[in-house]
Design a protein around this nucleic acid. Structure first.
Lengths: 338, 338
DNA sequence: TTCTGGCACTCGCAACCTACGAGTGCTAAT
DNA sequence: ATTAGCACTCGTAGGTTGCGAGTGCCAGAA
């Protein structure tokens, strides 16, 4: 019983099931697949694969379909395919027209959903450590202020902060000017100490401390982590084939974002080029029947954000991995040079 | 043949079909509904209603279901219900915690999707005509600049503009300062002439004109019109009942936004308190089997944005209309006072 | 006129049955 | 280690049937 052939059988089963969405039987494999053995031999191999828990049969007289573990082994053994040349061109032309960070992210997520024909998710790039260009404080109503931080790398972060109680207009104005002066030219991590020192030098009312905190927060992280997604209709198309009722929880989880973000963080830690989570591996009930293919992107080795594709476990893994990797690469290049 | 009873029959059919999702027959109506007539009478009324094109039967031996026209008449004749007291409280508590314009919009859309159990859409409030607080120009790369406009009403708009060719650093800086000085304190509509005058006084290179245009654009409209939505899983739930394959195009149209925006614009023109589009009335193929309930909100009578709920034509119109109206009202109040 | 009871008729649907065939596991032969 | 053959399982498609919900129409009552 050649180990190599058993692997080939597993691969053939995965590929067959992915393309036809029907269980694949031993006879069909013997005919279409090019391993030169008879169906009986394949049956023996299948029995062994089933013993290992890599494939299963939905009912007694049906062919085999891969289990999560089967997909897992397949993915680990297959290198992601090369991307077709026209697709490569599509990526460059589509993304190079972007004028804006928002635009880049939005175009990327659409492109990825079209390439993979899955739901695509792109996490907003984590901000780089770059000098503050200007801090603007604008009074809103009597007890709130708007904090705007413009960084040298073209990022604009904004947020509001409560002032607690009435603050005289002129006092607010002078403090705003002073805070701006302290911040300009400093990197976010230098900001904390510098502003603390300023607070000590000028004994201000308590509201100033809150404002300072808000400024530091905006400069550091800025907007809350978030992901954008596109191509949810691909989910509906996939759900048409089999489980219609699995789509609701997935849509909910996508909107919720929090589960998805946790998963992406976990996957970021794995360090691989492209990482894949299959079915139950996700740990989340909503994604129990979906797989996620993700890759990091970003300017440095550090400081990565993630993007990926999400679809039914029965997906074209090599193709999806190739598309995800390619988009991640181009996106890295763009984020770097911007 | 009392006209009133025929109306009552139509209403009973709509309500029955909405709550059970099954065609409703004359016998069932005679028993459950409280019109004191026999099933035969109801059958006659039904025949008349069918003649008018208000109801139809899916097959010969089934009950009747309302047509688009039937829903339309029902909606026109029924005032939107009053909202339950706990729901009202939910709106106030849920929305009053918001800290931010983004936060308000996001909370609203979630709330509305929960109240209606439909897909909720909220259009970003159209900016008010309020004075410019500061204009910031930041160089990005060699031939692009970031334009940030902060308005007195706590809005921050940003965009990029191409500079065409190399511009000396000091020339850019002085121009940026000058542009800011010209803009501060002016309303967006005053901005155009003022900046044009400035351009004439100081004969600048061509790049300045592009920058000026960008500043005016950001001050006026700012970010492109867009809508956010939530509760797409409600679509999946509804699709479970009947047509699974109608959900894909709807999801696509939601992501595309452009069709939805056109529809909302059209509905804004109708001037009603709450306006309803039913099925084919939408004109868009994707929404041929869905209805949209929308209401305007905003600070003034002018200057309204829209929000609404979108679901299958077989929806609880009175309840949805009540929820949409209530959220629109509270949202108006919040946007006003902010 | 308007409503009601009665009756014949239609027809979708669920339940049931059956035959088919794809697919399997096992065993004996190569 | 592989293969051919064979008996067996079982899901599914196709066909048939009976039921019952629902209708339209008509004659008689209010």
């Amino acid at each position: 019983m050649s180990e190599d052939r058993r692997r080939a059988v597993l691969h053939a089963i995965v590929e067959g099931y992915v393309s036809t969405s029907e269980p694949v039987g031993s006879k069909a494999l013997a005919e279409t697949s090019h391993l030169g053995v008879s169906s009986a031999t394949i049956r023996n191999d299948m029995a062994a694969l089933e013993e290992e828990g890599l494939i299963a049969q939905p009912h007694t007289s049906a062919g085999r379909i891969p289990t999560d573990a089967g997909y897992r082994r397949f993915v680990d053994q297959v290198a992601s395919a090369a991307l077709h040349e026209p697709h490569k061109r599509a990526i460059t032309t589509f993304l190079s027209d972007a004028v804006d960070l928002n635009d880049v992210v939005e175009r990327s997520v659409r492109l990825l959903s079209q390439l993979t024909r899955q739901v695509a998710v792109v996490q907003y790039p984590s901000p780089r450590e770059s000098a503050v260009r200007r801090v603007e404080l604008v009074r809103i109503g009597v007890d709130r202020a708007l904090v705007v931080v413009v960084s040298a790398d073209a990022r604009v972060e904004q947020g509001t902060v409560g002032l607690g109680h009435d603050v005289p207009e002129d006092e607010f104005e002078t403090a705003a000017r002073a805070i701006n002066d302290v911040c300009v030219g400093r990197t976010p991590s230098e900001l904390g100490p510098a502003l603390a020192a300023w607070l000590q030098r000028n004994s201000h009312a308590s509201w100033a401390a809150a404002v300072v905190d808000a400024v530091v927060a905006q400069a550091k992280g800025g907007t809350v982590e978030r992901v954008v997604f596109a191509g949810t209709s691909n989910l509906a198309r996939a759900a048409n084939d089999f489980e219609t009722d699995a789509i609701g929880p997935v849509l909910d989880a996508l909107e919720e974002q929090v589960v998805l973000l946790r998963l992406l963080h976990e996957m970021a830690g794995e360090g691989r080029d492209v990482s894949v989570r299959i079915g139950m591996e996700n740990g989340a009930d909503a994604f129990a029947r979906t797989s996620i293919v993700a890759a990091g992107y970003g300017s440095q080795g550090e400081n990565v954000s993630l993007l990926g594709a999400l679809g039914p476990t029965r997906m074209d893994y090599p193709g999806t991995m190739a598309a995800v990797r390619a988009v991640a690469r181009y996106l890295s290049r763009i984020v770097e040079t911007e």
